[in-house]
Design a binder for these strands. Structure first.
Length: 651
RNA sequence: GCCCCAGUAACUCAGCUGGAUAGAGUAGUUGAUUUCUAAUCAACCUGUCGCAGGUUCGAGUCCUGCCUGGGGUGCCA
């Protein structure tokens, strides 16, 4: 039962026949921002001031007199410049809460089903997964779960990067640097070593020629900055120029330092230098291996077929730990055979044209065209993305495709969507669900001090270990009267630790960058999953101690009555679960749901403090409060579950 | 150069289609504990919402300009 839409509907009826666009104005009813003003508020009168040429308070009074809502709310109040404030009847709340408690879906309705394809995670195989992969994976998974719960048909597809230049690097590395014993012992580790080795050589070789130029550039920048500063002292109009010169100087210093770091890091091992000399221009060599692979070279194809399952197995082990499952894993390689015909049909349709040797799609509103075939004949990711849309339309007939990909690719998606529309895919709602960068404590993209990326598995281990230290601390366990086996405490640490990582990610507005701070997220205080999980465990503890067998059927015999204010606000929050879910899908923001759950957990904590359950004044109150606890527990579990986060009965 | 995103408390961040006195968490101060699990609760403290104009009954939110930071920008993905 969605209370908001129920109330809006009453306003719609009151507005119909009085003003134009009653629906638009009815939608201006919302949850009250400040509980002092009631439960819901309608900001309808003020914007009608000009249309009706009446004072807004007068409009509000007239609207209230037309409104038939007495069965749900107390008398509507007109306040301030013309706000209409509504307060739900306690009897109505109690009745709705009882219905939700007995409902398998907690009173959440289903939407008219639409078909969604969600494209998320999409790591590059053969590269170790790192913290940057968390966001796409976790956000995409949460959206898939929420959409499914609300009745949509969801097809999840992991568009693996399994055909790109990284394979050229690994193939080259395998051919020249493999340690057969190490490969036999642990192919994943060895392949990962080969990738990093080739990558570091390429980085070094690219850095060396830049060094001299950057040093010269720095000297020039220093001189210019000094001159500009001197000029600014004489003529204050030159201050802007001086500031720009200073900025350029800083930037030149940073660039040089970065290149020097690469070179010094590489040269730290003298063996590296010999290797780099023996394999000049490694980047081109690796590209050649990639090209051979794409052209069907038997040796490279055999190596690719050998390496791919190894890498995928490693990625899947991460997904298993995170409880992430895909309906399809159709990587780039899957589309490779389709690309030439995709390009040809675009050429035939005169959508694409040749320019400077490349095949391009020129799009209105964009300076640069979208390239779909390079001068050398190779295809690009835009080509694959177009072929993918074609395939998904044919196979799945989706209403919506969501691409959960970081914000740096927003221009690419704008072009891709424009191209798709131009190609006639106008019935699919294509959405780029972009997200910000994961930052380290220094406010820069999350890396170690030496600049290396940190493996995702390591971070998961760390979070679980920290969760164990904090949650399963023997002193604490004893104080709380929890005696756990090693297995149970390990399981608690696992659920809490993984939840901490997922929740930290989901609770931030997806479009902004956020600081990935393992220390903070496992502090297990404040707005964290552990706090919510803890409230869930306390609820289970009360229910256990009550000795009652509570389930969806038996709860019908536990009549709900709301007397204390903490009970009432908790009940209202519980009934707004559906609103939170719908709003989280409005623009695909899982953080709306985390905020809802955290608020709910806090309200429960307050209720727990103020309203004793097992020692309640009367049996009726005790039973009512047990029903409230039971329902709160179910909503918390369901809500966390929709974020891919589990709960435990004791912690 | 052009395009996109951001700038809110000491710190990390919310702030929904413009609404009432701008909110949480952390940190700090204070109170509550023979605990239905104190990982808790209650209270206090902290603001030039980057700057300047504009739109209107009303602007953190919309528009313009500027400042600062990040990202993208024809042959990587």
């Amino acid at each position: 039962m969605q209370i908001l839409s129920l109330i809006r509907n009453r306003f719609f009826q009151a507005l119909t026949g009085w003003i134009d666009q009653p629906e638009e104005y009815a939608s201006r009813v919302s949850i009250a921002r400040d509980p002092q003003h009631g439960d819901y508020q309608a900001n309808i009168a003020m914007p009608l001031q000009k249309t009706l040429n009446l004072p807004p308070r007068e409009i509000a009074n007239q609207l209230v007199s037309r409104l038939s809502i007495g069965d749900l709310c107390h008398e509507a109040e007109v306040a301030g410049p013309g706000f209409i404030n509504l307060r739900l009847r306690d009897s109505f709340l109690a009745e709705q809460l009882a219905a939700a408690a007995q409902d398998s879906r907690l009173g959440v309705g289903c939407l008219p089903s639409r078909t969604f394809v969600i494209d998320y995670s999409a790591p590059n195989v053969a590269k170790p997964m790192h913290v940057g992969h968390i966001r796409s994976t976790v956000i995409g998974d949460a959206l898939a779960r929420i959409l499914r719960f609300l009745g949509h048909q969801v097809i999840t597809d992991n568009h693996l990067g399994d055909w790109g230049t990284q394979f050229g690097m690994i193939i080259y590395g395998y051919k020249h640097f493999v340690d057969p014993v190490a490969f036999h012992a642990d192919p994943v580790v060895e392949l990962s070593r080969l990738y990093r080795l080739v990558q570091s050589i390429i980085a070094y070789q690219n850095a060396c020629p830049k060094l001299e130029k950057l040093e010269q550039g720095l000297n020039v920048a220093r001189k210019q900055a000094a001159e500009a500063e001197a000029a600014a002292k004489v003529d204050s109009k030159q201050k802007k120029v001086a500031a720009a010169a200073l900025k350029a100087l800083r930037s030149a210093e940073d660039n040089l330092a970065a290149v020097e770091a690469i070179i010094n890091g590489f040269q730290a091992d003298p063996k590296n230098l010999t290797v780099a000399q023996q394999h000049p221009d490694l980047e081109t060599q690796a590209q050649l291996e990639t090209a051979k692979l794409h052209q069907g070279d038997a040796e490279n194809l055999a190596l690719w077929e050998r390496f791919l399952p190894i890498s995928i197995a490693e990625i899947e082990s991460v997904y298993r730990r995170l409880d992430i499952h895909f309906d399809h894993t159709l990587g780039e390689s899957f589309y490779h055979p389709l690309l030439s015909s995709t390009v040809q049909s675009l050429l035939d349709a005169k959508m694409a044209v040749e320019s400077e040797g490349a095949i391009c799609i020129f799009l209105e509103g964009f300076d640069a065209p979208m390239l779909i075939r390079k001068r050398d004949g190779a295809f690009l990711y835009a080509t694959t993305d177009l072929a993918t849309i074609e395939y998904r339309q044919r196979e799945f007939q989706p209403d919506v495709i969501l691409y959960v990909v970081d914000h740096r690719q927003s221009e690419h998606f704008q072009k891709l969507f424009a191209a798709a529309r131009a190609c006639g895919y106008t019935d699919i709602d294509l959405q780029h669900i972009s997200f910000g960068t994961v930052l380290g404590p220094d406010g820069k993209p999350f890396k170690t001090r030496s600049g290396a990326v940190i493996g995702l598995e390591y971070l998961l281990d760390e979070a679980i270990q920290r969760a164990h230290q904090v949650v399963c601390d023997p002193q604490r366990m004893q104080k709380a009267g929890l005696e756990m086996s090693a297995e149970e405490s390990q399981e608690v640490a696992r659920v809490v630790g993984l939840g901490a990582i997922k929740y930290a990610d989901l609770s931030h507005n997806r479009t902004s960058d956020y600081e990935f701070n393992t220390e903070k997220m496992v502090q297990l205080e404040g707005n964290t999953s552990a706090y919510i999980q803890y409230m869930y465990a306390r609820i289970q503890s009360i229910i256990r101690k009550s000795g009652e067998q509570l389930d969806q059927d038996s709860i019908a015999h536990f009549a709900i009555q709301l007397t204390e204010s903490a009970e009432r606000s908790l009940a209202l929050q519980l009934l707004q679960f559906e609103d939170a879910l719908l709003q989280s899908l409005d623009e695909y923001y899982p953080s709306v749901l985390t905020t809802y759950l955290y608020t709910l957990a806090k309200q429960f904590a307050s209720f727990f403090d103020q309203c004793h359950v097992l020692n309640a004044d009367s049996e009726e109150v005790r039973r009512s409060r047990l029903a409230i606890c039971f329902t709160t527990g179910r909503v918390l579990k369901q809500g966390l579950g929709l974020l891919g986060i589990g709960v435990v009965d004791r912690m």
